[in-house]
């Protein structure tokens, strides 16, 4: 499968008098193959939006190499811009313009037939509200309008930064269906999102970024399999005694008030057998499969210290210190 997006060693540092030097992206790599629906995950301030902005020529990279649809970006981006639809971080529109006029002006500027405007308004469910001023739109409607603007070009590649922002559950489902139908039509989709369950449902591939670096990438099931601890949830009458028995049988187990979690289980019948031999009968035996959220939290360290208030992009600041002192690598880089 040919690569539609290739990023290698992308680096970007922001310098400001007030905030000093901040490394936003630090040698990041990303590959998106043709026809993929690719999830791009990372905590706030991890470098997702900076990466997408650099890819789309809105931010000047300090280093690295990027390619979009075979054209080096940003130098030759204009050659393929007509085939790339994108929204970056909830775009704002003039409140005084109607949704229709907003899209019409973009279509005019991009040389797209104006007839496409009605089609994309229909596609995102705004057809009946297209004649209303944008300032009357809800956040979700503005998001739909943004997606409509990205779809105007009938793109081969769709880059969406947080497309589900502000959408209600029904809207999220519609967006998911839209992404799927686009993917079925052969459109490659790169979605950056915080809604991990949605990414798991929509995407077939995923890349996770933390502190400006890639910490995981691949097919979703492969990434999840890499974190499968072969754990099972077991419900029995006496969890603590059961845990001791399983330990003695060579299976690490952690007892909880009403259940226990057993790890390194290759054959779940071993659990039933060990406990049954001692008169403890298993009421429930459920495999614990990792989901994207748990993998994400583990990789990015976001869930490590729930009692400590988490700081946005604190990882990136840590990185600066490490670079300045030359000591060690960040956790993200090691993963």
């Amino acid at each position: 499968m040919s690569a539609v997006i290739e990023i290698e060693g992308l680096r970007k540092t922001f310098n400001s008098v007030r905030n000093g030097r901040r490394v936003a992206v630090d040698g990041f790599d990303l590959t998106v193959g043709a026809g993929e629906v690719h999830g791009f995950l990372g905590p706030n301030g991890s470098g997702k939006t900076t990466t997408l902005r650099a890819l789309l020529g809105l931010v000047r990279a300090d280093g690295g190499w990027m390619n979009v649809l075979g054209a080096p970006s940003p130098t030759h981006l204009s050659q393929v811009a007509g085939r790339v639809g994108a929204i970056v971080e909830s775009p704002q529109f003039f409140g005084n313009f109607t949704g229709y006029r907003t899209l019409r002006l973009l279509a005019l500027a991009g040389g797209v037939p104006v007839s496409r405007v009605d089609e994309v308004l229909e596609q995102v469910g705004l057809h009946d509200r297209g004649d209303e001023r944008v300032k009357g739109y809800s956040l979700g409607m503005k998001q739909r309008l943004a997606v409509a603007s990205a779809l105007l070009k009938n793109p081969e590649l769709l880059i969406l930064d947080e497309p589900a922002n502000g959408l209600d559950p029904a809207g999220i489902r519609e967006m998911r269906d839209l992404m799927r139908s686009l993917a079925d039509a052969g459109v490659t989709v790169l979605i950056s999102s915080h809604i991990l369950a949605e990414i798991q449902l929509i995407c077939d591939h995923v890349t996770i970024i933390s502190r400006g670096r890639r910490v995981a990438a691949g097919r979703v099931e492969e990434v999840l399999a890499g974190f499968d601890q072969h754990e099972f949830l077991v419900r029995v009458a006496e969890p603590e005694r059961a845990a001791e028995l399983l330990h003695a049988g060579g299976l690490p187990a952690v007892a909880h008030p009403d259940h226990l979690v057993v790890g390194q289980v290759d054959d779940p019948t071993t659990i039933s057998r060990l406990l049954g031999e001692q008169g403890l009968w298993v009421r429930e035996l459920t495999p614990l499969r990792p989901d994207l959220e748990s993998v994400f939290l583990e990789l990015t360290g976001e869930g490590a210290h729930p009692e400590v208030p988490r700081q946005v992009d604190s990882g990136a600041r840590d990185r600066v210190i490490e670079l300045d002192t030359g000591v060690g690598e960040g956790r993200g880089g090691d993963a």
């Binding site: 789309l56 020529g57 809105l58 940003p74 981006l77 204009s78 811009a81 790339v84 994108a86 929204i87 970056v88 775009p91 529109f93 973009l106 500027a109 991009g110 603007s149 070009k153």
Partner: peptide
């Protein structure tokens, strides 16, 4: 930014 996404 919107415009530059169309005409970079």
């Amino acid at each position: 930014v919107n415009l530059l996404l169309w005409r970079p």
